[in-house]
Design a protein around this nucleic acid. Sequence first.
DNA 1: ATGACTGCAAACTCTTTGCACAACA
DNA 2: TGTTGTGCAAAGAGTTTGCAGTCAT
Lengths: 143, 143
Amino acid sequence: MPPVSDIDQHLVGKLRERHLRVTPQRIVIHRALCAQSQHLTADQVLARVSETLPGTSLPTVYSTLELLEELGLVRRVGTGNSAVVFDSRVEPHAHTVCRRCGAMADLEGTAAPDDALARAGAAGFVADHAQLVVWGLCSACAA
Amino acid sequence: MPPVSDIDQHLVGKLRERHLRVTPQRIVIHRALCAQSQHLTADQVLARVSETLPGTSLPTVYSTLELLEELGLVRRVGTGNSAVVFDSRVEPHAHTVCRRCGAMADLEGTAAPDDALARAGAAGFVADHAQLVVWGLCSACAA
DNA sequence: ATGACTGCAAACTCTTTGCACAACA
DNA sequence: TGTTGTGCAAAGAGTTTGCAGTCAT
């Protein structure tokens, strides 16, 4: 994990590039996502952000997450279960999702997405990202 | 595509096995999903079903889709965009989703999910299904 | 100074729940 | 006949929109 100042600089650079404003909300929301290697829902982001920036609103969280996604700093991961989660690991990678407790975890070392991107391209589809979700029971729930 | 009578028998068998009732709604909803190789939202299922069985309600569609998923006859595919879609192709396979028009298509020939299932198992996760979603622009929207 | 961004409130969509009636076994 | 399943209405969760005021540039 890079230091906070580097994380901030990355965001500030991208914002300046596009002549967008650097606001405390954007800085803090971005930090919240990078700080934890967990996957957070919009509600969870708001909870973390509120600790350091009370009064922040959910609509701002949503609009900022959308912006961060456009800037390529965050990925939206849809499992089909309830809320969408946001992930600061932007390279294609796999997730496991537990059917019982809903826990989500990274799955390391799957070459799957690269293969899929190539095949999609061959089919005339201009692919920019692949997400792989594996359903089942986590080790805790399987017992 | 197997004939309708075979599709129905498959469902009826599974229902009888579990001492669940065979109702016209269940038959028609199942047919609607198998008939089109498309991916349908709950609303779209209701629209198709209403043609042959008017008066069918959305809550019934949802509860039946959930049942069909439990019976292993249908998969729920969550893209993270708006509504969840339901797919009668139950074997693990990949989908492409267009960021512009939202169109969803099957992506053939990706061996990817098998690899992921194996890796998840090695990590202590009891995997039962893998779904791969590739984001980008469909050939029509890319132009 | 000026225009982008935020917060508030309300609306909207998708999905689930509770209950009385209908219909499969 | 005894439940299971359905339809209706309403509630609930997650997300988006409109607008007035604030703040970064």
